[in-house]
Structures are given as structure tokens and as C-alpha cells.
Design a binder for these strands. Structure first.
Lengths: 333, 333
DNA sequence: ACACTCTCTGGGAGCGCTCATATCGCTGTT
DNA sequence: AACAGCGATATGAGCGCTCCCAGAGAGTGT
């Protein structure tokens, strides 16, 4: 069965190419009767318009790219990305676009592929996530006219973005711990050259400051958001006898708990732990994890939505969206 | 900066459209001197060929689809998919294709979207994963002329696939347990309407049979590969006092361990546990998890490679590839 | 009755490539 | 000197759509 064209469908329905095109694109000026006839032919034949021809003529592809830079591709197993991808896919479906994924393994790869990605006209727009502030790939994309939305504060002026309120969340964690009587609050953070790393640290410090307390250097340790890195970070902090820990990811929080148990201490009796993410694995942990739940999937959908708006109106003024996070109290604090 | 065309680049280099096209497509019959001149213009201008025009003319898009059916999209957080996506992305990069992701949330969605996906010519080929044998979406795709590779035994004749040797792996687990003196081996399986569910069960039964032992019904329980489902399955099995458990995923194995601990028993002293996956989270568990490591990322890459071969030669005879799994002995058995 | 509007439909042009075919300028041969 | 033969390059056609404009009817007002 050779592939049908608009012209073929038109011939079968006794109308012209253009009328069929109008039906397919849901344009109004087609007589209902004619429209029905055309639609019947379409559904009988299973005709679907050729995507390439459509893109060539209309200059839109219905494809958006999700770019995940090299430095996180080894952390890709973090459920964060699974949720994010789900959210973006969902959003894309809503605007009848499809999602293409760009994972990079090295900065060199970012450089090589990026012109092909950006210049080929293959994408209507692109969502870039998890970059370090000022990331060169994002900077490069931002300098083209390819519509771009960042997930997470991008640290580049004029780049629209969607983020969760990392700062307020961390602030809330500090407040919670202090209000529950914890005196020596420690912090396990993500890499400081990420915006989440920066913001969560800043929020936590601010929150403690409200209670006139500081976050001494020896109660700070840093990981890469993964469980083992939380374990290691906790090893450092144990020497300085904290009575509570706020970790910037659930993974690190679970790692910290494992370390605390290995030291023969108990959570939360000896040391309370709060995570950040709200993933299901924190429910099943022992003890279950008190955490700040962030709306990851919604972040992804929202990014697509924002991108879609920008596609419709290229001059939309840029307004960052910052989604709230919520403290889920379970057993670890 | 208006977008350049082949013609523009040609004009700048003092050659014609087609010569530039030959340079870009690495065809041989271009004088080295001319080639160099054209390449210089290309790199100076940052020209990149328009993907849509290229596809329209050549009938190939350089895009392959990865389809993940509805019934697993809620399990998408399983690191399995992250690894698989990484593998597929890697493979796609090697054949300079890009990857588009299709996640479905319901069977209805599968039906709606599939014609658009299949008939629009947007994809050169498609990789379908994690379907139940005989899955209708896969069956539909198989009935078109869109090149298709399955990941996991598809249960449809003539569909090429890549799989890991689930059966041999489970056989190995049974052998290992019996050789180490475990007498009452229980099994926590995946859903029986998945090929991995079937094959791992069959292999385990075969393995036990080698030692003249059977797998009684009350030592079988089933989950959905997730941690909580392993916990629940283990609850059932505990009543029948197994001394060893083979779980068909690391997640379920960890759930089982948690359940065993909750019952006040120890792993492996009271009950040994073997998982299946080889994910990093099994290294950090307490005790660390003995498991069958499967080459997930390689499976993804290999699927792309196979698809690529099929694209080059549509009449390639179909040969399933089955990758080996390997027993990693850690502390839980 | 006429010009005029308004709605609906058809056809031409062109998007930027690839592919097949035509053409050019050489060399080597007789 | 003329011509075949060959590699390198140019040209034409066309991929299947969208967009724009022209034209056909049908209806309206005078």
C-alpha cells in the first residue's frame, strides 16, 4: 500500500488537496457535509499527513527537545529524571508535540551535537534541565533564536524558566527543625555549582538565621544527590555531633540514615533527618523519610506549556514560574 | 540571520547546490580542494541542512522511536528504564539518529496515537519495550512496514528482538541456591503476562528440577517488580517458611529483605535472597544484594544497532539476540 | 436587475533538500 | 586531430505539504 497523499484523499472524497488540508488542520471554512465526507475517507484509508512535508511547508515540526547535559547523565537513574521526563511527555502530548531526548556524555559531545540540534530546524523549541548556572550549552542555545525554556534557575539573563521553590523549601526545613527543638542542625547539600545546590543552602541558612543560629562550616557537607554520596557526607558530619540533618535530596537523606545506623545511632531519636524530593522510596525506608515534596512532573509539564506559549507569541515577556514545595512529615524527623 | 540553504552555501563557495550536498553527505566524487572550500564555508557560516527538507526528499528522518506502553508507565521510575534509555540514546548517537520517546498512560492512548506515530513517516523505525507478549500496540506496528525491534521476547512471530537470557539467569539462581544448601527456595516473580515474568519463572523451575526439587505453589508469589510489591509478596511467602528467595527484580528483592527484617529474621542467615538486575542500589543495601546482573544499557544499544541493520537492508533475516546475565555474589546469599 | 458582499473551494507557488540525468573539461587513444 | 571515456559538477524534477489568492456561488441591498 503506497503511501497516500493529500491529493489522493481529495480525489477519493471528490474535493481538492486544499480542502482536505483544511479539514485536517481543523480550519473553519469547510461545509460540514464536505468535512464529514473527507473525514470518512481519512478514517477509512488511515491516511496520516507526512510529517516532513508538513514541517517543510509550515516551518513547524511538532517536536520539542529535552536536553540533559553531560554532568548529570551518570545520575540519570535518579527518579527525579524519570518523573521529569514523564511530566514533559505529558505536557508535550497536550500540545500534540513529540519529545526527543538529548543526553550527553561529555562536554565535547555537547559541543559537537549542539549545532545539529539547534540549526537543523528539527525542533520547535527546547527545554534544558539541570545545567550548572551559566552552562555553556544553554548559553549557546540562548544566543540562537530557538525558543528555550530552562528547568531550574539558569543563571542567564532573559532565559525563561520553571523552578521549584528550593529556597522556601529549605527555609521550611530549617524552621521545622528549630521549632522541634533541634539545636545542632547539619546540612548535606548538592554540588554548589548547581542552582538547586545554591538555593537550598541559602534557604537553609536563612531559615536558621530566623532563629539566630548559624550553619557552621563543619556542619556542612556536600554530595552529588546520590545515596552513596549522602552516606559519605554523613561520615564527615558525624564527627561534629549534629542532632538533625537536612539533606538536599531524598537519596542523600537515605544515605545519611544508613550511615547513622552504621554508627549505631537511631533516627530520629539521636539524629533527625529531612530529605528533599518526596519520592516513593522515602515512604518505604526505615524510618520513613520526612521530606520536602517537590512537584517534579508538574515542573516538566509547565515547562512545555511555557514553551508552547512562546511558540505562539515569540515576544511573550519572560516570567519565571516557581512552584511550591511541601513538607511531608513522616517518621525521620 | 536568515536561515541559509544549500544554494546559498554553494554560492558562497562558488559551487552548485549539489556539490555542497555531496560534501555534506560525504560522497566521494568531490575534488579535495573543492571539498575543503565548501567545508570552510560551512563551518564559517554554521550552516546545517534543514531536517524537514532532507527527510521529505530522502524519505529518511534520522529519528527512531522508543515506545514504552501504558502498563509500565507507572513503573517508569524503575532504574531499568533509565538505563535502557541511556543505552538506546547511546546507540542512536552512534548511527547519528535522534531518539523520540513515546510514553503511554492508557491503552486508549496507545490506540489514538499509534496511527500518527506509525503512518506519518516521522520515524525511520521503532523500538518497543516491555510489552506483554502479543501486545496489541506491537501487533499493530508489526503489521505495518515500519521497521520494528522489540526489547524482550515479543511473542509475535517474525518480530526481531533483543533480550537478556532471563531463563539462564533464573536457572543459575536456582543452581546457586541449591548448591549452597538451601532446601526451601521461594520465588517472587513479575507479572506472568510479561515475557520476563514467564521466562524467569520457567528458568527457576528448570534449575530446581535439576536438583530434583519442585517449586510448590505456596512458595510462589508475584509482584510488579517494585519494592513495595516485593514486600507484600514476601508477606505471603513467610507463612511457608522458605530458607531462600529468588526475586525477579532487585526492587522486589529489597522489598523482600525489608519484610524479612520486619519479621525479626535475618538475611542471609534465616533467609537468603537473590535479586535480578544488578543495580547500584543493591550494593548499598543492608545486607548488600546478591543478584543477577543484566546488561540493560547494552540491550538498548543493541536494539538500535539491529534496527539500523534492518534499515539498511529491509530483507535481513531476523535473528534474536540474547545477552548473557551474570551472577554477582554479594552478602544476601 | 445590478453591483456588492461573504463563504467556500481550487490551484499555483514554493519550502530546501535528494536523486537522476545532462553537461563539462580532461586525458589517453587511434 | 578527432573522438571515446571518465571523473567532477551543474541542472531539473519532484518529495507532500501549507499558504495565498483567485474564482465560483449564494445571498443581500438598492
Amino acid at each position: 500500500m503506497a503511501r497516500l497523499t493529500l491529493e489522493d484523499v481529495g480525489a477519493l472524497a471528490g474535493v481538492s488537496r486544499s480542502t482536505v488540508s483544511r479539514v485536517i488542520n481543523n480550519e473553519s471554512s469547510v461545509r460540514p457535509e464536505v468535512r464529514a465526507r473527507v473525514e470518512a475517507v481519512i478514517s477509512q484509508t488511515g491516511y496520516a499527513p507526512n510529517a516532513a512535508a508538513r514541517s517543510l511547508a509550515s516551518n513547524r515540526t511538532g517536536v520539542i527537545g529535552l536536553v540533559i547535559p553531560s554532568h548529570v547523565s551518570n545520575l540519570f537513574e535518579d527518579p527525579y529524571f524519570a518523573r521529569l521526563i514523564q511530566g514533559v511527555t505529558l505536557g508535550a502530548k497536550q500540545i500534540s508535540s513529540t519529545l526527543t531526548l538529548f543526553l550527553f556524555e561529555s562536554e565535547e559531545e555537547e559541543r559537537e551535537v549542539s549545532p545539529r540540534v539547534v540549526e537543523s530546524g528539527f525542533l520547535d523549541g527546547v527545554i534544558v534541565t539541570a545545567t550548572r548556572p551559566g552552562n555553556s550549552l544553554m548559553r549557546k542555545i540562548a544566543s540562537t533564536d530557538l525558543p528555550l525554556v530552562a528547568i531550574g534557575r539558569p543563571g542567564i539573563d532573559g532565559v525563561p524558566y520553571v523552578d521549584v521553590d528550593n529556597r522556601a523549601g529549605a527555609f521550611q526545613a530549617a524552621t521545622f527543625l528549630r521549632e522541634h527543638g533541634y539545636e545542632r542542625c547539619g546540612y548535606i547539600g548538592g554540588p554548589l555549582n548547581t542552582s538547586t545546590g545554591e538555593d537550598r543552602l541559602a534557604g537553609f541558612i536563612d531559615g536558621l538565621a530566623e532563629f539566630n543560629s548559624a550553619l557552621p562550616n563543619d556542619l556542612r557537607a556536600f554530595g552529588d544527590f546520590s545515596e552513596p554520596s549522602g552516606y559519605d557526607a554523613m561520615s564527615e558530619l558525624l564527627d561534629h555531633s549534629p542532632d538533625a540533618i537536612f539533606a538536599a535530596s531524598d537519596g542523600m537523606a537515605l544515605g545519611a540514615i544508613r550511615r547513622i545506623h552504621d554508627a549505631g545511632l537511631s533516627v530520629p531519636d539521636d539524629i533527625a533527618v529531612i530529605g528533599f524530593d518526596g519520592f516513593t522510596l522515602g515512604e518505604a525506608s526505615e524510618p520513613s523519610l520526612t521530606t520536602l515534596e517537590q512537584p517534579v512532573s508538574a515542573t516538566g509539564s509547565l515547562a512545555v506549556e511555557l514553551l508552547h506559549k512562546m511558540l505562539g507569541d515569540r515576544s511573550t515577556p519572560f516570567t519565571p514560574s516557581v512552584l511550591p514545595v511541601q513538607l511531608i512529615r513522616r517518621a525521620s524527623a
